[in-house]
């Protein structure tokens, strides 16, 4: 396990250094260009356009798997570090100032949101997966509803088994009163991530309190129900985390396309009115 980590750290250090070197070179070139009365805004504009197109091609690349253009992992690394570089070129291009025009402001805002969502996504993709993996099982997001249904079915089967074997309805009544609702419910979007599992604790406590009214066989089945409760809790946490890992893309990707449209308008205006071509 140590070798890959070292490799990852070395790769990150190397790419970070390369990006910083590029940033420094661009900063120096921009300063020299400005001092030499060169149209630095024009140059950084074209560079920014190229970088944004490169970044946007990452999404297209995933849709064109037949193209022999590096693998997705390499493209992701390129996307991340080119993204940082793009943010710097954007600051150079805008002079780190808030634009005054309406279209320019929309363009600026769009870029900021896309960049911020990208940075957020990068952070989430680094921060959340280890936390989600603590459960010991990596779930596929699309299967989570199925798994919830399966847990609910298993819980029902256990209750039926207890009723059939012990002729007691204690567990069945408890299922109807508490457990059924808990297995059927999906918590609020990000509540499990925020530590909001009060529902789970309440149900578990009530199940524990019920044990004194259970005979030996019912207690064994109640223990199995407790395991299902724990599995449901993990399932809810997995669902919230994975949903978050997917939801930031709902900001990043649509706004990227909106950004490309606005960039097109901006370039058209510049070519139409600028004294520089």
């Amino acid at each position: 396990m140590a070798a890959p980590l070292k490799s990852f750290a070395a790769r990150r250090a190397l790419l970070s250094l390369a990006t910083l070197a590029l940033v420094g070179a661009l900063a120096l070139a921009a300063w020299l260009g400005a001092a030499a009365l060169r149209p630095v805004g024009l140059y950084t504009g074209w560079l920014l356009l190229g970088l944004v197109l490169l970044l946007a091609f990452f999404n297209a690349r995933k849709k064109l798997p037949f193209l022999p253009l590096l693998n997705a992992g390499t493209w992701l690394q390129l996307h991340v570090y080119a993204g940082w570089l793009t943010c710097f070129v954007f600051a150079l291009h805008t002079g780190a100032r808030l634009p005054g025009g309406r279209l320019e402001f929309l363009l600026w805002l769009c870029f900021i949101v896309v960049a911020a969502s990208g940075v957020s996504g990068l952070w989430l993709s680094r921060w959340l997966p280890p936390r989600l993996a603590r459960s010991g099982e990596s779930l596929i997001y699309e299967r989570i509803p199925l798994l919830r249904h399966r847990l609910e079915t298993e819980a029902k089967a256990l209750v039926h088994q207890a009723e059939a074997e012990t002729k007691s309805t204690t567990l069945a009544d408890f299922y109807l009163r508490e457990l059924g609702g808990y297995f059927a419910r999906s918590p609020a979007l990000l509540a499990p991530l925020a530590g909001d599992d009060a529902d789970y604790h309440r149900v578990k406590l009530e199940l524990a309190a019920l044990r004194r009214f259970l005979n030996e066989r019912e207690a064994a089945l109640a223990d199995q129900l407790g395991e299902l409760l724990e599995a449901k809790r993990n399932l809810d946490a997995q669902r919230a985390g994975q949903r978050l890992l997917k939801l930031w893309l709902f900001v990043h990707i649509p706004l990227t396309y909106g950004l490309l449209v606005l960039i097109g308008a901006h370039v058209w205006l510049v070519l139409h009115y600028s004294h520089r071509l």
Partner: peptide, 19 residues
């Protein structure tokens, strides 16, 4: 997400045309 992409693109295009 794809539908949202188209919605945003259409909005941006409409805005650009108006602008």
């Amino acid at each position: 997400r794809g539908r949202l992409v188209w919605l945003v693109v259409c909005l941006a295009l409409g805005l650009v045309v108006l602008a």
